[in-house]
């Protein structure tokens, strides 16, 4: 029996209970282990995912300075401006880098997930991870790198999560068009829109229609 509605932000919601080895580090190590293999594609594009974690990722180029993008993302409460199913992020307690994410579920409930910043390099990288007493097991990393020429900044978002129902759950989420990959891609595109244009594209003809669409996307 399903007593707990999955959040529509599934890379968190599908994640199971318990902490294991750090999956992003493991994926990177795996890539390093293939040194004989001349392939410079990022680890998250590998055809086979490793272990019990799913790793999804996506890159976009944003025509804005690296420092500006980094600063916006580092202010975690900003994330709800472009992550569709995130109601809000707020600092948790007095410890720096500790946040509570409030994520909407399909049923309209809001689930709280605690994260800590695991690593940060000013202007380059922010990594976060769900805490031990959190009910989901996930970690994320966003990196910022100068793009060639005048293109701006390459932003890569990589999410690792532990699917609650394994491969079957993954397939079901895909069918429902809520796969973590899709969600991460849409969120990142909205981030790009917001940074490059100051707004997020919509075809809504009226403010009421826009409101309705925003709610349906959650």
């Amino acid at each position: 029996m399903r007593h707990d509605h999955p959040a529509r932000w599934p890379w968190l919601a599908l994640a199971g209970v318990g902490l294991a080895a750090l999956p992003l580090a493991a994926a990177a190590a795996k890539r390093r282990g293939r040194e004989a293999d001349p392939d410079s594609a990022p680890g998250h594009t590998a055809r086979r995912s490793s272990g019990e974690y799913r790793v999804v990722g996506r890159s976009v180029t944003i025509a804005r300075p690296r420092a500006e993008l980094y600063a916006f993302w580092r202010e975690f409460p900003n994330l709800s401006q472009f992550m569709a199913n995130l109601e809000k992020v707020e600092p948790a307690g007095s410890e720096p880098g500790h946040h509570t994410w409030h994520i909407r579920t399909i049923a309209g409930q809001v689930r709280a997930v605690d994260t800590r910043i695991a690593r940060e390099v000013d202007g380059e990288l922010i990594a976060w991870r769900s805490t031990g007493d959190s009910e989901v097991d996930t970690e994320g990393r966003v990196t910022f790198a100068d793009a060639p020429g005048e293109r701006g900044t390459r932003v890569s978002l990589i999410i690792a999560y532990k699917p609650a129902a394994g491969a079957v759950g993954d397939a079901l989420a895909n069918l429902a068009r809520q796969s973590p990959e899709l969600q991460a891609r849409h969120d990142l595109k909205r981030f790009k829109m917001l940074m490059e244009t100051g707004e997020i594209a919509t075809a809504a003809r009226t403010r009421a229609e826009h409101q309705r669409e925003t709610e349906e996307a959650r």
Binding site: R185, R190, M193
Partner: peptide, 23 residues
């Protein structure tokens, strides 16, 4: 949008920001 990579190189019909992400 006028601000993305393609708009900046005047390939306006390839604008990256005008089509809503879910579309």
């Amino acid at each position: 949008c006028g601000g993305c990579f393609h708009c900046r190189i005047t390939q306006f019909s390839a604008c990256e920001n005008s089509n809503p992400s879910e579309k």
